[in-house]
Design a protein around this nucleic acid. Structure first.
Lengths: 334, 334
DNA sequence: GTGAAAGCGCTAACAA
DNA sequence: TTGTTAGCGCTTTCAC
């Protein structure tokens, strides 16, 4: 085992309490004693036992980040932002992946009951069959901040982007560029952000006198194997759309895959715009017009909000931060 | 506070030790007592205090993953693999980003001295000014597995891909497709994997009677702002290479950026092959020929190795797992 | 200014 | 089979 306070105390002919206080720089201890203790402790390479102090102080110094996946550029950038803020504050980041499975989300969240983490940052699964586990987490006063994929029905802090407006803007952009027949590639489940992007799409349709029948919302899933046939069918149908809004990165790139396969020219035959955080959107064939989400900033904002709650003991429930996305026009909608 | 064993013991007229053993399903306890305890504990929603048991058992149930960055598809897939194995075994994953800064790597690793994590998975920074912190970590018997970016000089477990052979294969591929004048985009620092990829490149040159002078190794950095001018210079020079090997994903995509900018046609004027794990390599303009690294599998293998060391108390130091990369030929080298 | 002592909640000898 | 007891290493009254 490592060096303990007890050992230092013995060696220095002091009481453990004195050493403890000295190490925490208490005003009660004389400068001389402090100096002696510090010097000796560092000479012995003393490292306080995390579990002993956590047991007493009831905090771990860890925060959890719960995500559907990490192989999506939005989420990996968000982690980046979160980790940056956490590291600066001396917190440690635990990462959990749900893979869109409520069951996993539940057991992950339930494991937080033992104090392993002091707070939670979360983007929920798309298919929330139940949100009891989240309600429970919140009700046991675990500081909780949702980012991007928020959970409705829980009055907890949120960091989101302007999804409605972004959906509207993306759609209007297609119309402005000349698309006459649109489609919105939605995502199965019940995500507020997807619903809002979709509402934005529908709003833009109305704004331009277009109807929902000929400009459909197509519900995609989380598995490529499902989506490719779906998109293929859409693009091979009699009434092929000439403008597509992808509600998440995945469906946008899948649209590319199908267009390449069917030899459909983007943008000549089909314009494509997608919600995405891809660094290399500009290198795609053709370069992809994106609604670029402020992933890194959202991560930072969410973490900052969480730490405010943790350290200042403030109740941040109900706070909502919205950071705007930016439409970056590229070749796919030229 | 939550319910404690003590409380359960009192309510049930049992000793705390009896309850403790019952909850851990010890053979010493009668089925009836166990049943009573379990039933009562779950009725009270008992959750064991993590810090109390960690203090006793001297293990945290956490592992650390230390990475240069997460916004690279290789590393995010590796995390995916690691997290999958960890979740299956009931471990928790802490993620730390070094951003290629040895200083950060040092302080991160030093923070592991207090027992917060039971083991470490790591891909080191490129510029290891010092590796004392790693030596120290290893010498205090912290189970440690390097993956991809291993640290030489520390006899610890490793999971890598066949870098030399991949470098050779990539280069030979360019030559086979007709490239006459090559360049290898290396990476500043002192990474073993980069050196080996480079050795593979040089081997292929020799195999084909090509010399190093006209087929240079160009040393790139980690910042795009440095690399773009460098690559631009290379591709604008009198002796423009017509075949480029990118030693990491970043430099391959940066080569694309420059080619687009200079209106150089890939592959007609320059063929490009890159080490990469990009899902969408096939959608780039043109689709990118990749040495596809088994990122997910490497993450899984590294985590599995670590858990073997943690749970079986085996010393895995010196074990080395090599998983092959695959060359996927696409348009960029047609 | 320093020290003694009582826990934090749990585990594991050892005793009964 | 169950209970007693002594800690794990640290923090925190409270007494000196």
């Amino acid at each position: 085992m490592g060096v303990t306070i007890k050992q230092i105390a013995a060696d220095l002919n002091l009481a453990v309490s004195t050493v403890s206080k000295a190490l925490r720089d208490s005003y009660e201890i004389s400068p001389e004693t402090k100096a002696r203790v510090f010097e000796y402790a560092s000479r012995l390479n003393y490292v306080p036992n995390l579990y002993a102090s956590s047991l007493k102080r009831r905090r771990s110094g860890n925060i959890a980040v719960v995500l559907p996946e990490v192989a999506d550029s939005f989420f990996s950038s968000a982690i980046d932002g979160i980790e940056e803020v956490a590291q600066a504050r001396g917190y440690h980041v635990m990462v959990y992946l749900t893979h869109e499975d409520v069951g996993r989300e539940q057991s992950i969240v339930q494991a937080f009951r033992n104090g392993r983490v002091d707070g939670v940052l979360m983007s929920v699964v798309a298919n929330e069959a139940t949100r009891d586990h989240l309600v429970e987490l919140d009700s046991r006063d675990m500081p909780l901040v949702f980012f991007d994929r928020v959970c409705e029905g829980i009055r907890s802090a949120q960091v989101v982007t302007d999804d409605f407006e972004s959906g509207r803007k993306a759609t209007q952009h297609l119309i402005d560029r000349g698309s006459k027949r649109l489609a919105f590639l939605s995502l199965a489940g019940d995500l507020a952000i997807i619903r809002q992007r979709q509402e934005g799409y529908l709003q833009a349709l109305r704004d331009n006198g277009l109807d929902e029948q000929t400009n459909p919302v197509v519900c995609c899933t989380h598995t490529e194997a499902d989506n490719l046939p779906l998109i293929r069918h859409l693009l091979q149908g009699k009434h092929r759309p000439d403008g597509i809004v992808g509600s998440v990165e995945k469906v946008a790139t899948q649209t590319y895959t199908v267009c390449h396969e069917l030899n459909l020219s983007i943008p000549a035959q089909v314009r494509v715009v997608g919600f995405s955080h891809l660094q290399i959107a500009g290198l795609l064939n053709p370069s992809l017009t994106t609604i670029t989400q402020p992933a890194f900033e959202m991560g930072k904002a969410a973490a900052t909000l969480l730490f405010r709650s943790l350290e200042k003991q403030v109740d941040v429930r109900g706070e909502k931060i919205t950071i705007s996305s930016v439409l970056v026009a590229r070749q796919s909608t030229a």
